[in-house]
Amino acid sequence: MTFRMKGAAGAFALAAALLQGCNSEPQSEATQAAASSTEAAAIAISGAWTRETAPGQSTGGGFMTIANPGSEADRLVSATSPAAGEVQVHTVSMDNGVMRMRQLEDGLEIPAGGTVELKPGSFHLMLIGLKQPLTAGGTVPLVLHFEKAGDVEVSLEVQPVTATGPAGTDQPMGEMDHSGMAGHEG
């Protein structure tokens, strides 16, 4: 191998590069896995829950808070669960007074230093093709697939059908204030 260098700076840079190459070892699978786990740790999940379903019900919702303390935005691109045939990332919008759900084909951005709440009537996960009813007190395993952080394992706690949030935080549905809604008097 022949190199032509101009000046001492070029020779020094070449020597440093060659020494670095001599001292580096190929990364083992364990080292690569540890690096991947560290990246996944950049996303924090809290309050993961779902509602119980009735026998024969084929869909359910998944809710949680996703925090990204990192300095770069990330994106929840998909999710999987052995409890469902498919899991989609959804949003809800109002269209002429009708609430409509739709899949977010490009996933959901989690802003740098920000938090996104997946909750009923807003962003959520839709579990489609449930393999068995979800029973209050149980859990649903889920893997969230992020564009940068990679895979993050989550367990959804199954709450009663009347729940409006994770255990200990919800308000019974019968006590909700509907006075601001059309057709309701309070």
Results as ranks from 00 to 15, higher is better:
residue 5 M to H: 12
residue 159 Q to V: 04
residue 179 S to T: 05
residue 59 T to M: 15
residue 139 T to Y: 04
residue 160 P to Y: 05
residue 113 G to C: 02
residue 7 G to D: 11
residue 138 G to A: 06
residue 32 Q to R: 10
residue 14 L to E: 14
residue 9 A to L: 14
residue 13 A to M: 09
residue 83 A to E: 10
residue 140 V to R: 06
residue 8 A to D: 09
residue 148 K to N: 12
residue 26 P to H: 08
residue 37 S to V: 04
residue 21 G to E: 13
residue 7 G to R: 15
residue 6 K to E: 15
residue 82 P to Y: 05
residue 183 G to N: 03
residue 95 D to S: 12
residue 161 V to Y: 05
residue 139 T to W: 00
residue 79 A to M: 06
residue 29 E to F: 08
residue 152 V to Q: 05
residue 71 S to T: 15
residue 90 H to Y: 05
residue 81 S to T: 06
residue 185 E to V: 11
residue 34 A to F: 06
residue 96 N to T: 09
residue 70 G to P: 04
residue 141 P to T: 00
residue 163 A to M: 04
residue 10 G to W: 06
residue 113 G to M: 12
residue 48 A to D: 06
residue 118 L to N: 00
residue 179 S to G: 13
residue 28 S to C: 04
residue 164 T to L: 09
residue 57 Q to V: 11
residue 151 D to M: 06
residue 116 V to E: 12
residue 117 E to V: 11
residue 146 F to W: 10
residue 134 L to R: 00
residue 165 G to C: 13
residue 184 H to N: 05
residue 150 G to I: 03
residue 117 E to G: 10
residue 173 M to K: 10
residue 71 S to E: 12
residue 99 M to W: 14
residue 28 S to D: 00
residue 124 H to Q: 14
residue 5 M to G: 12
residue 67 A to Q: 13
residue 69 P to Y: 14
residue 159 Q to A: 14
residue 91 T to P: 01
residue 180 G to N: 13
residue 31 T to W: 13
residue 79 A to S: 02
residue 67 A to H: 03
residue 139 T to A: 15
residue 84 A to Q: 07
residue 186 G to W: 13
residue 153 E to S: 14
residue 77 V to Y: 04
residue 35 A to C: 04
residue 101 M to G: 10
residue 39 E to R: 15
residue 46 S to M: 08
residue 137 G to K: 11
residue 131 K to D: 01
residue 184 H to A: 03
residue 179 S to N: 11
residue 74 D to N: 04
residue 165 G to I: 04
residue 185 E to M: 12
residue 149 A to K: 00
residue 19 L to G: 03
residue 17 A to S: 10
residue 144 L to W: 00
residue 90 H to I: 00
residue 4 R to H: 12
residue 109 E to H: 06
residue 93 S to G: 05
residue 55 P to I: 01
residue 145 H to R: 09
residue 51 R to A: 08
residue 20 Q to K: 15
residue 142 L to Q: 05
residue 101 M to V: 04
residue 138 G to F: 02
residue 60 G to N: 12
residue 145 H to K: 12
residue 78 S to F: 03
residue 81 S to Y: 02
residue 134 L to T: 02
residue 97 G to C: 01
residue 97 G to V: 07
residue 81 S to F: 02
residue 184 H to T: 08
residue 182 A to P: 04
residue 114 G to H: 10
residue 51 R to D: 07
residue 132 Q to P: 00
residue 13 A to V: 02
residue 131 K to I: 06
residue 182 A to S: 07
residue 129 G to T: 05
residue 48 A to Q: 02
residue 122 S to F: 15
residue 85 G to V: 02
residue 79 A to I: 01
residue 146 F to P: 02
residue 155 S to K: 15
residue 45 I to S: 07
residue 156 L to S: 09
residue 127 L to N: 01
residue 161 V to M: 06
residue 179 S to F: 05
residue 77 V to I: 14
residue 29 E to G: 07
